[in-house]
Amino acid sequence: MKHTISVLVENEFGVLSRISGLFSGRGFNIESLSVAPTMDADTSRMTLVTRGDNRILEQITKQLNKLISTIKVVDFTDEEYIERELAMIKVSTDGDSRAEALRIVDIFRAKVIDVTPKSYTIEITGAPAKINGILELLRPMGIKEVVRSGPVVIGRGAKGALA
């Protein structure tokens, strides 16, 4: 089962390799990982998506907590949360397909952020399923490149989950 885990870590030298090394060393899988500092310059937040049964997930959260640089770990899977991912998609367009591409962009509430006579570069934000959806529709036109950020998540409600 897929799990999205948010990890608050000390923003210090080597912390990313401690986390990624933990996953590779123990044979846990990482589907995506995104990292950025928080409002507090001393801490960073990592959002990672992983898969595994309950026992593996229990080990993953325990092992993450065991790292000295880890301040807090939240597995969002059992909580109400909002998930967003950003993607930039470079798609080949000519003739008829230019108008069709713009219609798709409109339907998905995406944006065109760069244009050439033969291509559009599209920016889209949403749940990963929505991004998969637009990719499916754009695929027949010829996708030249896709850059995805990996999802980030935040809990619903007024309370902050991490700090």
């Binding site: 026992r55 229990e58 080990q59 325990k62 092992q63 907590n65 065991k66």
Partner: peptide, 8 residues
Amino acid sequence: IDPTSIRK
């Protein structure tokens, strides 16, 4: 004392 040892 180490939670990771338990149920590993």
